[in-house]
Design a protein around this nucleic acid. Sequence first.
DNA 1: TCATATACCGAAAATTTTTTCGGTACTTGT
DNA 2: ACAAGTACCGAAAAAATTTTCGGTATATGA
Lengths: 119, 119
Amino acid sequence: MAYEKKIPVDLDCPLRLTMSLIESKWKSCILDELRNGEPQRPSEIHKCLPEAAPRVLDIQLKEMVEDGLVKKTIYPELPPRSEYRITELGLSLIPIIDQMLNWGTEHFDIFEKKYGKKN
Amino acid sequence: MAYEKKIPVDLDCPLRLTMSLIESKWKSCILDELRNGEPQRPSEIHKCLPEAAPRVLDIQLKEMVEDGLVKKTIYPELPPRSEYRITELGLSLIPIIDQMLNWGTEHFDIFEKKYGKKN
DNA sequence: TCATATACCGAAAATTTTTTCGGTACTTGT
DNA sequence: ACAAGTACCGAAAAAATTTTCGGTATATGA
């Protein structure tokens, strides 16, 4: 009972439900990382998302496990080893991730011009 | 120069860009509200999203205008009147909103059982 | 006159999220 | 012996978001 999630998910409406599962800063990126179905060790995920503080990835991965988007396997070895793998449920979100990826790619220049450093 | 947005959008990657435009608590709902193209007055939007504090909707609408997802028209009348209408750019996000809506509807019962009050 | 409605804004409080820091425990390589 | 790697956790700080509260201004209806 160490870490406890305050607001698990938003059950007010279907749209808010979906959003609440992926809107944390790095969750969509984690899903994108795991999309190919290959299991990944925490240290690998950290390396792929170097901008994120490792602690946040730990927390968000834990929430995603709790929500059923990701499955964790712990190998009782030393040094410790564990792996995260996307679940069927998590996989069913990939089309959404994809559309956001595509949209972002298509419209990137608009926002680059608008908000980028070098106008 | 009254209100200033701290972090306009996330230009780190296309996925984060898209997310950053819609991840605020009510923005996806606002887009869904305006999806049919009809202009809506602020008070109408407030009524449709009674759970949201009016001030947040003001702020988020302002950001969405700045980001180009929504267009605001002010009528110089008294009492004041203004309208928000979804733009082409905002409209291009609707397929994503739709997918999230569908996903949420399809998987609602899983999370109801998991996190709902009456198990 | 007074309550209500419209639209909006600033300041501050409350809440949530993210980050940083330090710590546990064990192994391998130098 | 000691640094580095692996996985993880708690506490606290920092940052961001959301909410609440009060205020501006004008008009209408009771």
